[in-house]
Design a protein around this nucleic acid. Structure first.
Ligand SMILES: [Mn+2]
Ligand SMILES: [Mn+2]
Ligand SMILES: [Zn+2]
Ligand SMILES: [Zn+2]
Lengths: 141, 141
DNA sequence: TTCCAATTAACAATCATTGAAGATTGGTGC
DNA sequence: GCACCAATCTTCAATGATTGTTAATTGGAA
């Protein structure tokens, strides 16, 4: 994702308004590697601007996703995750706490299957599931 | 998943009752490679037994999943999918119609990442996303 | 056949997300 | 600096998938 400053320019260039709400959301996302939910961003934003609605957060997240500045992920954790990391990478998901970590793996050795029925594969997603150290310890007790 | 007959025995052996509703659900799942939603199973079941509730379908699906006779998948298609295929395999998902196909790929060449923070990876999921022939054609028009 | 715990059906509630509509405001042009 | 209006924001209702609750029903052991 671009920096808040660059996003401000980008929004203006596209004829979109740059509101304080949006800028606050830009800042909450910038450099955020926690794969936050809309709710998580909302909490972070309301700490600074208490009146911002969750609806506005969703709208801005989708605007950014539409512009390709953000990727929305569905990792089966109950709610969508938003990822400002646009580099090709894969994810590690904890079954216990739902935390998501980035990981770079070479997926090229996976042979993309060929389908007789004309299915066109656009992307290959790899998700590593398991338990983080804290959740392993908790489950063992 | 075991056959309806075997499941009947298995349920009895576990002290669970074998109701006509459950048997009908067993039959709807047996050999089903469509990765049905609870709703889809419910439709199939109500064709034969119109009074079966969706709640009962969910309950039985979860019972089967708890017994390891079924795998519940969240492939980001909006609702959970239930898979009676217990062989190791991966999935191909159409972004258009949400249909899910089985595919067997060798995931062993993917190096499971090692994490300094003690994350224990239990399984590696690979999802191939794209469009089926019908949806490619529809999108092109 | 009796009986009771397991199961079922009906329905309310939850959670994440989206729809709708009226109130507010960024920023362009004066 | 001020007026204006489309874009945006807030509020609140609605959606769709799933789960909680509870009273009525029933499988199957005795
Ligand atoms: Mn990521
Ligand atoms: Mn499958
Ligand atoms: Zn964890
Ligand atoms: Zn399709």
């Amino acid at each position: 994702m671009k920096s808040p400053t660059e996003l401000t320019e980008l929004f203006r260039a596209q004829g979109l308004k740059v509101t304080p709400q949006r800028q606050c959301i830009f800042r909450a996302l910038h450099g955020n590697d926690r794969h936050p939910t809309a709710e998580a961003i909302h909490e972070q934003v309301t700490a600074e601007m208490p009146t911002v609605s969750l609806r506005t957060v969703y709208q801005t997240l989708h605007d950014l996703a539409d512009m390709g500045e953000l990727v929305e992920l569905d990792l089966g954790t109950g709610s969508g995750r938003f990822d400002p990391n646009l580099e090709p990478h894969q994810h590690v998901v904890c079954d216990g706490c739902g935390r998501v970590y980035d990981v770079v793996v070479d997926v090229s050795p996976i042979r993309t299957p060929r389908f007789a029925n004309g299915f066109r594969v656009d992307r290959t997603e790899v998700v590593f599931r398991g338990r983080c150290r804290a959740c392993s310890a908790a489950a063992g007790s």
